[in-house]
Structures are given as structure tokens and as C-alpha cells.
Write a protein that binds this DNA or RNA. Structure first.
Lengths: 135, 135
DNA sequence: ATTATTGCAAAGTGTTTGCATAACA
DNA sequence: TGTTATGCAAACACTTTGCAATAAT
């Protein structure tokens, strides 16, 4: 996890059943899942998988860029199959989280100037509101 | 936090020493503090205060609008003396969190149209970058 | 054969809660 | 006096870790 002196070789990721199962569930979910939601799903097919394996793999795959880690403010970590740049909207009523394409009516102009002395390298944008279903 | 039927009476907040001490530390801090940072500070003056009192009071005062709760993605909760609308920037190197005025080079155009079926009522914007001190 | 990965249990964070006692208004 | 607030300890939810056994390359 550390590019030390000069030869940084990323750990190869072995394709274990557990890994495969976890990846499948995250990718076919239409929701952004928490670790234990993934656990419950994978468990149906691999009853002996352990929760820590799920945690470890979600983290590892997120590090590898296979999945996206989703850390909404004040909430449990979730994992997302969509690794493209996008924002999120959370329904304050039912808690559902939906993706928001970067261009969906949102115009964010950072200019090139630093904000408050910061050299800004990125930002995250999170909407809240009421989803279609809830109104 | 809930205006139910008709007689909503907010609990009166008693001004205890603990409450006062906590409030003071948060207000005079130039940082956004976590509960246990507040605890350590208040403890210097009130050695017998308990951590749960700190937690309870920070939450209660945030509910009352005296302080602002600050939930940056994937991080510990912090509390903020500034209850006005503003954004935050976090230094990826030292972890410092600074306020960003709503108009600081940021142009966010929501239009009036809903995003992805959401009736958007708010958003939160969080910058990351390198702070002045760190570069 | 080598080394990444697993399952399990245990430990770690950060936060909340129940309860009897104390302090406020 | 009536009720909110406190301290303590214990519970909680989520996540990480140590370790010996196992599986992938």
C-alpha cells in the first residue's frame, strides 16, 4: 500500500470465489450496498464466507479501482459499481442513494484560483432531497 | 427537531457549567473539533466532566442550532461554531478543515429542474486539496 | 513452493444509552 | 419541587486485525 523506494509492484489480486461473489453482487445491485448487505447477499451462495472477508475485499477492490468507495457524510460506507466520476443524491425520506451524472444541471466553476489558500485538487458534491418514489 | 401536532415546546436548555465550558471551547477553537478533542480541552478546566456529557451536549447544541454539526465524508464528526451556510475544504496532507464561503469562486447552478427525479432541497460541497501550510 | 487469502475470534473506534445521583430553574 | 443534566459503566454499530489454516498462482 506504499510506493517506497523505487520498485513499487502492486499486489496481484487473486480471483477467489469469495472475491468473485462479492464483485458480482455489487455489480448487479441497483443500490449502493454496505458491507453487510453484500455479506448477506453473498452468503446465500457461499454460506461459509465471513464478514471480514467481505470487508477486506471491498476495500481491496476499491483500492484497485474495480469498485468505488462511497462515503456519504455521516453514513455507513457503501460500495458502488460505477467508478466513473459522478455525484450522489440522497433521499431524506427513504435514504435511497442515486447517482447524479456530473453534468446533470450542475455547473461547478472552480476557476484555477485557489480557494482560501487551498490548492484544490477535487471536490465531492452530495445532494439531498426527496426522490421520485417518495413524493 | 419535529414540529408535531400543534404544541411543540422545545426542551429548555439549562446553562450548566459543562455546557458552558463545551460551548466556549468550540467557539474559541480555530479548528473544527471532534467530541474527544473538546473533551480534552474542557477537561483541563473541569477535570470531572465525562465524555458522554460532551457527546450529549454537542449533539443537543447542534440540534438547537447553537453549533453546527459537521459530517465530512468518511470521517469523525466535528463541530463548528459557524452556523452560517458554508462549505469545507480538507487538506489531504495534514487533515485540517477550513471553511469556504459559499461564494468563493464556486458557481453551482442547480436551475429549478429536478436532478434525476429528485426534488433537490440542498447539497453539500466538500473540497480536498493541499492547504497553504502544507505546500 | 510461494505468498495471497480465508475464517474466526478478538480488539478497536466512535458514539449512544440506562440508571441512580446531582444541579438547575 | 419538578425536571433536566451529569457521571459512570456498559452496550452499540461498524470496521480492522492477528493468526493459523487454506487456496491460488
Amino acid at each position: 500500500m506504499n510506493a517506497s523506494n523505487h520498485t513499487y509492484r502492486p499486489e496481484p489480486l487473486r480471483m477467489t470465489n469469495q472475491r468473485k461473489g462479492i464483485l458480482e453482487e455489487v455489480q448487479k445491485a441497483r443500490q449502493h450496498l454496505t458491507a453487510d448487505e453484500v455479506y448477506e447477499l453473498v452468503r446465500k451462495k457461499q454460506p461459509r464466507i465471513s464478514l471480514s472477508t467481505v470487508y477486506r475485499n471491498l476495500e481491496k477492490m476499491a483500492d484497485a479501482g474495480i469498485l468505488a468507495r462511497l462515503e456519504l457524510s455521516g453514513n455507513q460506507r457503501r460500495y458502488d459499481w460505477n467508478t466513473d466520476m459522478h455525484h450522489h443524491a440522497r433521499c431524506v425520506r427513504c435514504g435511497a442513494v442515486r447517482d447524479v451524472p456530473v453534468d446533470a444541471g450542475v455547473e461547478l466553476d472552480l476557476g484555477s484560483q485557489a480557494i482560501n489558500g487551498f490548492a484544490v485538487s477535487g471536490f465531492r458534491l452530495e445532494f439531498k432531497g426527496i426522490c421520485e418514489k417518495c413524493r
